[in-house]
Amino acid sequence: MEEYSDKALLQQFEVEATRPHAFNLIVKKYQERLYWHIRRMVVDHDDANDVLQNAWIKVWNGLAKFRSEAGLYTWMYRIATNESLTFLNKKKKKFLIPLADIENQLSQSMEGDVYFSGDAIQLKLQKAILSLPEKQRTVFNMRYNDEMKYKEMSEVLGTSVGALKASYHHAVKKIENFISGD
């Protein structure tokens, strides 16, 4: 499939007649990257699917007014991040789960998840990641898995580069300690 530039897709989106087609192409271009980002945050596939679809609706509603200097993907990545964090907070409130226990629950659900194929080391690593506070986990995933630059992370999270470096450092140290245990 021919892959259009973001600029070309946005130009097509501006024209009402080609808007649905352009949006479809945007979804196809970015759906996997956004899905994996969300999946790593919410863990469960069904939850990730719901969050991703909600994020795409937000993108559809906001795209006509999109004027970000940061770029289309950064903007969508920010929406996906916010949707994921909102989902996790709602889940805590809905099931009256104490803040510290949601990660335990996600960790347990991962063990029986048919869509988790990692070995013992991977399972331990994922549990270590889930033991991090939400924001720290987000920062870790962005840097470790998505290999984002601090500047890009700063644009997504609205946090200073210095604070992000510190947060990533703390997160990595905690994970190192977790996997070194036993």
Binding site: F23, N24, W36, Q53, I57, D119
Partner: peptide, 23 residues
Amino acid sequence: KVNPFEVPDGYFDNLPRLVSDRI
């Protein structure tokens, strides 16, 4: 660095249509 998560077969093929329906 590996991705230990999987998705159901054909998930990404069907997603654009699901998104379109939701919109």
